Each structure stands twice: as C-alpha cells, then as structure tokens.
Amino acid sequence: MDKVISRLEEWIVAIVLAVMSIIAFVNILSRGLANYSLSFTEEITVNLFVLLTFVGTAIGVRQSAHLGFTLIYDRVNHSLKRVMTLFVGLMMVLLFGTLLYFGIQMVSFQIEMGQRTPSLGWPQWWFSLAMPVGALLCLYRTLQVTVKEYREHNVKGEQKI
C-alpha cells in the first residue's frame, strides 16, 4: 500500500508540474507572438501550485527532507530523543489535522454554495480539494515517519541498525 501511495504522490507532482510548465509556456508564447494574454491560465496555475505544495510536502516528510534544526536533538540522550520525536510528531499531526479539518469545511461550504472559479466557471471545490487531500497525505506521512523514528531507538537507548 505504501508503494502505491508513494508512486501516486510522485505521479501527481510530475503531472502537475508538467501541466503548470506547459500552461505558463503557452501563455508566454501567446503574449509574445499574438500580443494576447490567456487570463484563465493564472487561475489554473495558482490552484495547481497549492496541490503541488501539499503533495511535495508529503514527499518531503516521507523522505525526511524537511528543514530541521538538530543541534539539541543530536546532543541529548536516546530517551529524550524519543520524547522529542513524539513531541514533534504530535505538533505535525496537530498542524495537518487542523488543515484537514478546515480543508473539509472549506470544500463542503464551496459545494453547498455552488462557488465557481472566476475565469473558467468551474466548480471551485475541484481545486480546493488539494488542501484536504494534501493534508491527509501529510498526516499519513507524519505518522509513518514518527513511528519509524521512534522505533529506531530501543528501550536501552541503543540505535537499531
């Protein structure tokens, strides 16, 4: 299951980045050659960027590629490292859980109100789904990484290899 989610994340990022690049390139050509701007492209690009950010964050959490300040963590004993790992994991779960909750609320509201995008007139919730879906992926990856890091140290404080 984890492999499927990993591939899905990577494909989403690749496809979204390709679509954004193509749209931006076509808009540049349109402005340069025809002196005509495709205004709707900004709407699509901005909304796809949100999806790209969330899914990219999930990949970053999965690969432990997020920025971190480890000076204190590196100098404490293994028991305190376990406590710090749980604390950081809990804070990340709280963040992504909050984003998931409010993302679901936002999408529900947009569906209920029938909100549409300004330029294309598409349902706004299509784009807004990026927030709860991305937050759910980040939440899953946070739990996965926290459990993995916590288990890396056994009860005696020796690091497992």
Rank of each mutant, 00 (worst) to 15 (best):
R62Y: 05
D74V: 05
F109S: 12
Y73E: 06
P132N: 10
G32D: 09
S21M: 15
I59F: 07
M113C: 08
L48G: 01
R75D: 09
G103N: 03
L52E: 08
V147P: 11
V26I: 15
V147K: 15
M131D: 02
A18G: 11
T70W: 08
P132Q: 05
G134T: 00
A24R: 10
F96T: 00
M131F: 03
L139A: 08
V61N: 00
R62W: 04
I104R: 03
Q144W: 08
I111W: 11
V88D: 01
V61G: 00
E43F: 06
F49W: 10
T142M: 03
T117S: 14
W125S: 07
N27C: 12
V50F: 03
S79G: 15
S119A: 15
I5E: 11
R75A: 09
G121A: 07
Q144G: 07
L90Q: 03
Y140W: 09
I22L: 14
L29N: 09
W125R: 04
L67F: 13
L143Y: 02
R62C: 03
G32W: 04
E43C: 09
Q115V: 05
T53M: 10
V19D: 05
E9C: 10
Q105S: 11
T70Y: 07
Y140K: 07
V13D: 07
R141N: 04
T146Q: 06
R7W: 12
L90M: 08
C138K: 00
L94N: 08
N35G: 11
L136E: 04
G97K: 00
F109P: 05
V13C: 09
I22Q: 07
L8W: 09
L52A: 13
V147W: 12
H78C: 07
V50A: 08
Q115R: 13
A18H: 06
S39M: 12
G97C: 04
L67T: 11
I28V: 14
R82V: 02
V93C: 15
